[in-house]
Structures are given as structure tokens and as C-alpha cells.
Amino acid sequence: MTIAVTGLNAIDSPGPGVAVIRGLLEAESFSCRIIGLSYESLEPGIYMRDLVSKTYSIPYPSSGMDALMERLQYIHQQEKPDLIIPNFDSELYSFIKLAPRLKKMGIHTFLPTLAQFEERHKVNLPAFGEKYGLSVPRSKAVYTANETLSLDREYGWPLVVKGKYYDASLAYNHEQVKAHFNRISAKWGLPIIIQEFVHGTEYNVTGLGDGEGGVVAAVPMRKQYITDKGKAWGGISIDDKKALALNAQFVRETKWRGPYELELMKDKSGNYFLLEINPRIPAWIYLAVGVGQNIPEALARLAMGWPTDPFTHYEVGKMFVRYSWDMIVDLAAFEQISTKGEL
């Protein structure tokens, strides 16, 4: 089987691609060949030739769906991929829309529906929480920095300033709110989400929904080592019954289809707040593989329409510790991906 994977940017704020590929290559139920799909010539995964057989650059989501489809048709002619696993929030819209056309070409996907994708958007989180009975922090989507001026009276300080796809910073006064607003909106566009800050401990759950309300996989994790960008650089699998119950409620109520990551905050009273729903595999997915739930493998099986039993357990108290690694790369390889768009 040939599987195309995005998110090869294994950098300090890493894309999930390399971890997803490790899971796929360790799958016990099939063997596969990996095609990388990259946006930038220096995404480290491009040069990990023991993991990625060949990489093709693809156009940024801002180039539109037609440009992406044209490129995927070319890649299809060359490689005949059976499956594509997109790993970025920002590219999901295009892949969800293109999924029926890809299916006709023989390329499978297993993605959330467009309604699920839109509904869980940070901008829509308050309505989402209300609809499905999930506790979420109060938040408001704003289009100008002035709209934030009264929110501190409602939510108190600090405020969390979030980009629509990525990035979040804490602000302790209006000057900081404005600075974060300008920085994040310049990078990710509008709106900016201003969210109430919940004091507590952050937990994450990654999982896989079968699209009919069933949980195929779920592993909760506590971050142990967090980078200045808020990314987990180390974490541990935990046995948190409340987090798992909340996860099951999320999947059952939304009938979530595909992989996801829930970002949860547990306050001092033990109450959970759902901070974010990432509609894709997280970068720390290899922990799930390591504790007995190979989510990339199960995802590939679901996408191919193969019978897939839900995982029923995982090892608690296993840690992941991330590291960085310098590869030595010939200039010719960089030239190849930069000029020809494939390597």
C-alpha cells in the first residue's frame, strides 16, 4: 500500500507527519511505502529517506483547491497512492472538499465531515460546548483589537489570545492583548479568539472516531515538558477516567469521524474544560503507538474500509521524550526539492 502524508515539518513546533509515518511503518496488519507531501523545502521529514521514499511539494492552502487538485493528479500519475493522511488544520478544508474526487481516483481518506470540521472551530467553541453539553471556557471571536477592551471585565485577567488555526498567548493587560492580536493576526489572519483563562493542569487526549459515535482509540496524556511555544517536548500516558469519559461523550455526541486531539484543562476542583478540538492527529501520536494503540494504522484501515477493532487498553505511565537531531544533507537534495518540487 502507498500512503501519502503531510506535516513533515519536524521542527520546534512540529507537524505530526514524521510520527504518523513511524506508526504506519510499524503497522502489524499491512506494509506500506510512504510518500511525503511538503510545503517547504526544509521540512526535515523530506530528508528522512529511511522513513519517506519520495516527497512531492504541494501548494499552500491559500493557492486554492484547484492548484492542490492539479498537483495531486500529477502525484497520482507518478505514485498511485492508496491513501492520503493530511495532518494540518489549515489544509483540512481543501482535503475534505476534495475527498469525493480523490476517492474516484482510488485515493482514500478518513476525515471529519465538513460540518464536524466547521462546528468544532475555535470561533464556534462556545456554541459547540452548549450543543453537546461540554464545558468550555467563555470566548469571543474579534476582528479588531478595540473589541477586546471590555472583555477583561467579563473574563478577568489574564486573557488568552488565540489565532484561528494556531498560536496562543497570555495577555495581562490591554497593551499585551493588542501586541498579541497584531502578531497573531498578521500570521494567521482574522478573527482572533479571546478566551477566558482557566487555571489548572493541561491534559490532552488523542483518539480516533469511527464516524458512527464509536471510539476506536483513545489515549490521554499529561505534558511534562513544555516548550516556549506551548508544545509538549515530553509527556506521559495516564489513566484518567474523567478525561476518557469526556472523550467518549465527545465522540458519541458528535459522531466524530477520523483522528482528533482534545485539549483539556482540569481546574483545582477536578472539573474539566474543553479548550480546543484539533481535527487531526497530534505531533505526540507516537506515544499512542508506543503504549499499544497504533492510531495511524487504525486510521489507514478505516480509510481503506477494512474491519478495524476498537482498542480496549493501553499502557499507563509510559513517557515520550522528544529530541532534535541534525541530519547532514547534500545540497543536491535541497536543490532537487527546491527546483523540481520532488525528491
Binding site: 491534559y203 499529561r222 495516564i238 489513566d239 484518567d240 505511565g317
Partner: peptide, 17 residues
């Protein structure tokens, strides 16, 4: 469910602490 090793290392599997 609290795990305590013979060296005195304590792990709470519910919280990860």
C-alpha cells in the same frame, strides 16, 4: 492505583504526577 517504587518514586497514574 498509586505506584511507589522501592526507591521512593511515587507515580499517580490518574494525573500523571
Amino acid at each position: 492505583n498509586i505506584a511507589v517504587s522501592e526507591n521512593g518514586f511515587i507515580f499517580n497514574p490518574s494525573s500523571g504526577e
